[in-house]
Design a protein around this nucleic acid. Structure first.
Length: 624
RNA sequence: CGGGGUGUGGCGCAGCCCGGUAGCGCACCUGCUUUGGGAGCAGGGGGCCGGAGGUUCAAAUCCUCUCACCCCGACCA
C-alpha cells in the first residue's frame, strides 16, 4: 500500500510530497523515491524539482491533521523516547507491545526506510516481501518449531499448524532451494522491510521492545565462507552509512552468536540510558563487545598470607556480611552458586565475591541449558544451606571464573555457620576455568590493557554469519564449478527502523521535547502563524509554506486558532528542525523568524529569503 | 515465569485505611474578553469507579477470584 512511484523524473535524494487520497486535506504519508539508489535520473521538462503533482494542492495543516500532542507525560511511559513518542503524537499503544503509528510516526519510519532502501540497494540488495504467515513444516525442517516459545503459533480451519514469522531464514532457504541451482546464480542479497511478530515475554520501553514491529531483514546467499565474508563486510559498510545518515551515535560490537552457534556476528549499538544491552568498550584499542561475551581482566586483590582454616560465621550468608564479619575485602571471597544442567546435572559455579555471574557466559561454558538449583537441592548436593556452601569437598563438578586462577579466598565450608579461609582454586579443589563474570567498568582490556568502559545501549542492528545452518536442512544447495552439490552459505542481517527513531529521540531530545535529525524528521519546517485572525500573517505564512514545498522542503503549517505559546511549545515538542514564525515583526517590519530547534538560534529574514535561510541552517547543522 | 505496582470522564490525579451513591486540574462545547512561550471569566456536556462473585440496609471504598497495563529480574534464534 505504501506509495512507491518509479523514478520518473524525481530528483535524486529528495522526498516528494504527493497527495494520494481524496479528502479535505493532504495525505501525510511520505512518498518514496524509487528503489534504485544512486541512479541519476534525467529530469524531463515540465517535471521540475519539487513540483506538485498534477497541480494538486499540498496542505499539511495542524488544524486538519492527526497530531495529538499531550501536555503531560502519560502515566505508563517511563523511557524518555516512550514518553516523547506519545507526547509528540507519533504513536499510540493498542496493547502491550503493540502500537499504532500515527501520521508523524509513519513519516519518520518512511524516512528511515527510504534511507535503508537506498543503502541496501547500493550494495546490490533486491527487495522482496515474504509472508508473515508461514507453514509449520518449514520450521519443523529447520528444527526451530519446538523450543521457541516466543513464536506465535496458530492453526487454520483444517487444523494445519501455522506460525507468524518472527524472522525469515526458513522462507529464504526455501526460496533459495527452489530458485538457486548454480554457482552462477550466486551471490544474492535479498531483503525486505516487513512486520515481525514475536510473543515477547516482556514488551517494554515503548517501541524499543514490542511484539509486533517492522524490521529490515536481509539475507545473503554465497557459495562459500570467503564469499560470505565479503557479503558480511558489505552489510557492515551499508549499516554504517545508514546509521550515519540517520544521525545516530553508535558502536559496532562483537556479539554472542547464541546457543545455536554461527560463524560470527556483530551488533550496532546506540548508546542510551533506555537500552537493554550493555557493551564493553576500550578507548585504547577500540575493542568493543556485548557484555554477554566481553572479556576483561579485573584487578587482583592482594591476597593475605593466611593458612587454610575454618572460621565460625554464624548467621552470615551474603558476601557483604562475610567480608564485614571477617574484616576483609569482598574481592577475597568467592561466590559459590549451584546450578543444574539439563543433562549433566548439578554443577558448582564460582565467581569472585564482587563479581556478577553472567548466565549467558555460563551457558556457553556448559554448552547446554541449565537452571539455578532449588535450596533443597543445594543442601542435598553439598550438605549445607545456600549461604554456607563452597567448593572444598564438594562432590559435584566445579567451574570457576578465569579471575580465580590465582589468589586465595574465603569460601563457604559446606557446614552451616562456617567458612574456610585461605582456599586456593586448583590446589584445594579441582575445577575447570572459564570466563564467567560480567565485565565491570575499569577492568583491563584483554587486548591492550587499558581500562574498559561499560555502557548501556539500544541494539539498532545486527549482522550474523549463519553458515549452512538453514541451507542444509532445507536443502538449499547449488552445483559448483565441478558439478558437485554444495550447501549455500547464508548470512542474515537486521535493522529495526522504530528503534532507530527511538534511539534518535533518546540521543538528541532536550528539556522541551524531540530534536529530530534532519534526515529522519517528519518535516523539515514548522510554520507558525502567531495570529490566524490576521489575514496578512496567515497569507504570508501560507505563501512561505507553499514556497517551502515548491523548493523541496517539507513543511507543516500550524494554522490553529491557539495562543502563540501553545504553538511554540508544540513546535518544540515535535522537534522539527526549523521553525518559522510569522507574527508581529512581519506585520511591522516584514520580517519572519527562522529558528533552529537544535541550537535555538534565530534569524530574522524577509519573506523571500526564507528558503535560503532554511537551507543555510540545514548546511550548518550538517545534514548527512 | 518470579518479584513489585497501578486500574476512578479523552489525559493526569484525589477519594479507598475509617462503606452512605463521585470530585479536582487539563482537554472538549457555548458566549464574552484576550493573543509572542501551554490565557481569563461565565455557562455546559461527558464517568456501568477494569470485570465477576461475595459481605452489607447500603460498596469506588471491605473480602474472593479474574483481566489489563507498567516497572525490576529471567527469557530474547
Amino acid at each position: 500500500m505504501r506509495p512507491r512511484p518509479d523514478d520518473g523524473g524525481l530528483p535524486r535524494g529528495r522526498l516528494v510530497w504527493r497527495r494520494l487520497c481524496g479528502g479535505p486535506h493532504g495525505d501525510l504519508r511520505v512518498a518514496h523515491r524509487g528503489r534504485q539508489a544512486g541512479r541519476p535520473s534525467p529530469l524531463p521538462a515540465g517535471r521540475q524539482r519539487g513540483q506538485q503533482e498534477e497541480g494538486r494542492e499540498v496542505t499539511v495543516r495542524r488544524s486538519k491533521s492527526l497530531v495529538p500532542t499531550l501536555r503531560e507525560d502519560p502515566a505508563d511511559a517511563e523511557a524518555l523516547s516512550h514518553r516523547l513518542m506519545l507526547r509528540a503524537g507519533l504513536v499510540r499503544q493498542l496493547a502491550a507491545g503493540i502500537y499504532v503509528y500515527l501520521p508523524l510516526g509513519q513519516r519518520v519510519l518512511d524516512k528511515v526506510n527510504t534511507i535503508v532502501r537506498e543503502e541496501m540497494n547500493a550494495i546490490g540488495g533486491q527487495e522482496i516481501t515474504m509472508p508473515v504467515v508461514q507453514p509449520a513444516e518449514l520450521w519443523q525442517q529447520s528444527g526451530r518449531w519446538e523450543g521457541i516459545n516466543e513464536m506465535f503459533k496458530l492453526k487454520d480451519r483444517w487444523g494445519r499448524d501455522l506460525c507468524l514469522g518472527m524472522t525469515h531464514e526458513e522462507v529464504v532457504a526455501w526460496l533459495a532451494a527452489h530458485e538457486i541451482r548454480s554457482y552462477r546464480d550466486l551471490p544474492q542479497i535479498w531483503y525486505q522491510i516487513q512486520t515481525k511478530e514475536r510473543d515477547e515475554a516482556r514488551p517494554r520501553s515503548g517501541v524499543l521492545r514490542t511484539r509486533e514491529f517492522l524490521m529490515k531483514d536481509s539475507y545473503t546467499l554465497d557459495p562459500d565462507v570467503a564469499a560470505l565474508d565479503r557479503s558480511y563486510a558489505a552489510h557492515e559498510r551499508a549499516y554504517r552509512r545508514i546509521f550515519d545518515r540517520c544521525g545516530l551515535r553508535y558502536y559496532v560490537v562483537q556479539s554472542d552468536t547464541g546457543m545455536m552457534g554461527g560463524l560470527g556476528s556483530h551488533e550496532f549499538m546506540a548508546p542510551s540510558a533506555a537500552g537493554e544491552d550493555e557493551v564493553a568498550l576500550c578507548a585504547g584499542c577500540g575493542y568493543a563487545a556485548n557484555v554477554e561475551l566481553a572479556r576483561g581482566v579485573p584487578a587482583a586483590p592482594e591476597s593475605p598470607v593466611w593458612t587454610r582454616q575454618e572460621v565460625a560465621t554464624p548467621n552470615v550468608r551474603t558476601i557483604a556480611e562475610v567480608s564485614q564479619l571477617l574484616g576483609i575485602d569482598p574481592r577475597l571471597t568467592l561466590k559459590s552458586l549451584l546450578y543444574v544442567a539439563k543433562t549433566s546435572g548439578p554443577v558448582l559455579v564460582l565467581v569472585r565475591g564482587d563479581h556478577a555471574l553472567h548466565e549467558r557466559k555460563l551457558a556457553r561454558a556448559l554448552g547446554e541449558e541449565f537452571r539455578a538449583a532449588h535450596p533443597d537441592e543445594v543442601r542435598g548436593a553439598l550438605g549445607a544451606p545456600v549461604g554456607s556452601v563452597g567448593p572444598v569437598g564438594a562432590r559435584v563438578p566445579i567451574v570457576a571464573d578465569e579471575a580465580l586462577r590465582t589468589g586465595t579466598y574465603v569460601v563457604g565450608a559446606n557446614r552451616e555457620g562456617f567458612h574456610l579461609k585461605g582456599v586456593a582454586p586448583g590446589r584445594d579443589f579441582a575445577c575447570r576455568f572459564a570466563d564467567l563474570h560480567a565485565v565491570a567498568p575499569g577492568e583491563a582490556c584483554t587486548v591492550c590493557g587499558k581500562p574498559l568502559a561499560v555502557e548501556r545501549v539500544i541494539e539498532i542492528g545486527n549482522i550474523f554469519k549463519l553458515g549452512t545452518k538453514y541451507s542444509v536442512p532445507l536443502k538449499a544447495t547449488y552445483l559448483d564449478e565441478a558439478g558437485r552439490e554444495q550447501p549455500i552459505v547464508m548470512g542474515s542481517y537486521g535493522i529495526g527502523p522504530a528503534r532507530i527513531a527511538a534511539a534518535a529521540i533518546e540521543q538528541l531530545a532536550d528539556q522541551d521535547g524531540v530534536v529530530w535529525p534532519w534526515s529522519i524528521a517528519p518535516f523539515q519546517v514548522y510554520v507558525v502563524v502567531v495570529s490566524v485572525k490576521d489575514a496578512a500573517q496567515l497569507g504570508a505564512a501560507e505563501q512561505i509554506y507553499g514556497e517551502c514545498w515548491g523548493q523541496g522542503l517539507e513543511a507543516i503549517l500550524d494554522d490553529r486558532d491557539e495562543r502563540p505559546g501553545v504553538k511554540f511549545k508544540d513546535a518544540d515538542l515535535l522537534g522539527i528542525p526549523v521553525r518559522i514564525t510569522v507574527g508581529n515583526s512581519f506585520v511591522k517590519e516584514g520580517l519572519v523568524e527562522v529558528r533552529s530547534r537544535r541550537t535555538r538560534q534565530e534569524r530574522r529574514v524577509g519573506q523571500g529569503e526564507v528558503v535560503a535561510a532554511v537551507r543555510a541552517m540545514e548546511a550548518e547543522e550538517g545534514r548527512t
